[in-house]
Amino acid sequence: MPEPARNTRAKSAGTPPDQRAARSRKGEETRLGLVRRARRMLRALAEAYPDAHCELDFNTPLELAVATILSAQCTDKRVNEVTPALFRRYPTAADYAGADRTELEEVIRSTGFYRNKTSSLMGLGAALVENHGGEVPANLEDLVKLPGIGRKTANVILGNAFGVPGITVDTHFGRLVRRWGWTDLEDAVKVEHAVGELIPRKEWTMLSHRVIFHGRRVCHSRKPACGACLLAKDCPSYGIGPTDHLEAAKLVRGPETPRLLELAGIVEEVPEKTVATQAAKEPVA
């Protein structure tokens, strides 16, 4: 009598021993163990996203400050559609300070909450002209005093316009570092400090980009692609999303898809058509 065929799909969908071990560590991990695991994950993210970057288009610190203000409750894609005309019309802080409110509102209307954002942009321009010679300051203390600039926005500006390391705790970043067990804190400033104690300062800006990239491409809010994640062996939350390789692969999005599936060790299991389809999909906002 022939031997029954093995269910290889079921086997791949199970939880491998190293991933079960990762989950079991959640309640017993030492501080040193956490630091080592976080830095392993950092290295894996660097390999996966070597070209991660700020996805807002800008050429100057002022342009980045403006774009970041507009990005509140709006996708980066939409902001990038609006800013070329905006930057041409308002190239300096003085231009925002002296803008006609109705005209400025109309230019940025499609980014949402345009009245509040207009107030922030005009206030930002006035504050820069009055207190900083029309230039965006390159330090956190002065940045957070500006209209429309909170700590998250300030870190975006410092890290990407001035090369000053900073951790940007947005929705994706906070969700992922909590899933990874790097912290259980909810407050963004406390999350920033907790993660900063795990990761070398020189890595902070690129860490922010890479975590955000991973959140948009693999570790989604409602249905993370656990079975296609290169961080699975170090993730204590492995299994909250599909663990079947093929099902998970259909959740990965963006042009990095082939590389991500290769690094996860499953690219040979996934049909080429599926890889191409997912690579053509835009990462989630």
Rank of each mutant, 00 (worst) to 15 (best):
P50I: 08
C54V: 04
C54F: 07
E55S: 10
E55H: 12
L56S: 06
L56H: 10
N59D: 14
T60L: 07
P61F: 11
L62C: 08
E63I: 06
L64W: 11
A67D: 03
T68Q: 06
L70F: 09
L70I: 07
A72H: 14
A72E: 02
D76R: 02
K77N: 06
V79S: 09
V79P: 08
V79H: 11
N80W: 04
N80F: 04
V82T: 15
V82D: 12
T83S: 09
T83V: 15
P84K: 10
Y90A: 07
A93D: 08
Y96V: 01
D100T: 04
T102G: 09
T102H: 09
T102C: 00
E103C: 00
E103Y: 00
L104F: 11
E106F: 00
V107K: 05
R109V: 02
R109F: 15
T111G: 07
G112N: 06
G112H: 04
G112R: 06
G112I: 04
F113I: 13
Y114L: 03
T118D: 02
T118F: 00
S119V: 10
S119R: 15
S119A: 15
S120G: 00
M122L: 01
G123A: 05
L124M: 05
L124F: 01
G125R: 11
G125S: 02
V129I: 08
E130H: 11
E130V: 01
N131Q: 13
N131K: 15
E135R: 15
V136L: 06
V136N: 07
V136S: 09
P137C: 05
A138C: 13
E141L: 07
E141F: 06
D142V: 01
D142Y: 07
L146G: 04
G148D: 06
G148K: 05
G148M: 03
I149F: 03
A154P: 05
N155Y: 13
V156L: 13
